[in-house]
Amino acid sequence: MRYKATVAYDGHRYAGFQKQINGTGIQSLIEKALEKIIKEPVSITASGRTDAGVHALGQVFHFDGPEKIGERGYYNALNTLLPKDIRILKVEAVSNDFHARFSARSKRYDYVITTERDNPFSYNYKHFVWRSLDLEKMRQGAAILQGTHDFTSFSNAQIDPRKPRTKTIYSIDVIPEGKDIRIVYRGTGFLRYQVRMMSAVLIAAGEGRIAPDDIARMLEARDKHACRFNAPACGLYLVEVGYEEVQPEKPE
């Protein structure tokens, strides 16, 4: 039986989701837990990788395992065996053609910024900025990045050249939350480092270090050297993976 699992994790002490040679990947811990439950090696497939220090509220993976254990059995056993900073939220039996990565139709990432310098509990979970931010300039920059574009300028230089760079961003919302600012990204999917790099240029625009027009020039360049900005991993959260077609909102 194929199972779809939704997992949340605090990424700050892990080397990312993917299995690592020189570090602990969250995938390795889940697979070891499943091996103890099923009594044989198990491979899981996630909706995508998250890098070292990145958090998740709704990462999704699938695995194949004996039906007799059941959804509740896997849920209880995994949460018993996994560290407390990795929590399985749900396990669902799905059809054998479900694929956590290839069946995904949309993703939501949040990037959280804070101006609260003296809160020691913020630093692993938010990106601290000391300059005041102009939310209107950030929103102007966000509007430029929305839509369907080639995001080569906002991707890792080592990305596989065969991987398509064109993605659709349905919306980018810049939301003040007390001393924090949350940037909410919804789209078909995102390249490695894309959300962190876009967040960094929006922060730079908010600080007045660059203009929104500079963001447009970076995007239009389609050059991996055009953007030198990259925000820290600590503020990034994979919030949700969608498996139904998303219809972009029509402008009024």
Rank of each mutant, 00 (worst) to 15 (best):
P251V: 02
D85V: 04
K39D: 05
V239A: 02
G65T: 12
S106P: 12
S43A: 13
P83T: 04
E35T: 14
A56T: 14
K36V: 11
E136Q: 13
D64Q: 13
I26R: 01
V184A: 13
G65D: 13
F154P: 02
V184M: 13
A142G: 09
A77S: 15
K224G: 01
D223I: 07
Y9I: 00
A5P: 08
I210G: 03
I69F: 02
K224L: 00
I113L: 14
C227G: 02
S122Q: 06
V129L: 07
D213N: 10
S155V: 00
F190Y: 15
F121K: 06
I44V: 05
E71A: 00
L133T: 02
G235I: 01
N119S: 14
T114L: 13
R162G: 02
P161A: 03
L82A: 00
Q59N: 15
L57Q: 12
Y185Q: 12
I88H: 00
A142T: 10
A93Q: 11
L57E: 15
I169E: 03
Q247E: 05
S122L: 11
A204M: 05
A104P: 12
I183R: 01
E31H: 03
Y123P: 00
D134I: 04
E136N: 15
L133C: 10
Y193N: 04
N96C: 09
R72L: 14
D51A: 15
P161F: 04
E40R: 15
A93H: 14
E31I: 03
C234E: 11
I69G: 00
T168P: 10
R228Q: 13
N79T: 01
F151K: 10
Q146M: 14
S106D: 08
D134Q: 04
G178A: 04
D110N: 06
A77D: 11
I37R: 11
I38H: 11
K68Y: 15
H62I: 12
K39A: 07
L89C: 04
S199I: 05
K36C: 05
V42S: 02
I181E: 02
Q20A: 03
M197P: 02
R222E: 08
N119H: 09
D97K: 12
A77Q: 14
L57R: 14
R105S: 09
D118N: 14
F151G: 09
L133H: 03
D180P: 03
G70E: 02
A104C: 14
E31G: 08
I38N: 12
N96F: 13
P251D: 07
E220I: 05
R182S: 04
Y243T: 10
Q140Y: 13
S153V: 01
D97E: 14
K167P: 04
Y3W: 06
T50S: 00
R108C: 09
A93F: 11
E92Y: 15
Y75E: 06
Q247V: 10
P164I: 06
A15H: 10
I159K: 11
D118A: 13
S171V: 13
G147S: 06
K90Q: 06
I113S: 03
F121I: 06
S95A: 09
A5V: 14
R217I: 07
R101E: 07
P83F: 07
A204G: 01
T152A: 11
N96H: 12
K90C: 08
T80Q: 09
L219I: 07
K4S: 14
E177L: 09
I169M: 13
E240I: 09
D118E: 10
P164T: 07
E240N: 15
P161S: 02
R131T: 15
N156D: 15
P251T: 03
A100N: 09
E177G: 08
L89D: 01
F63T: 04
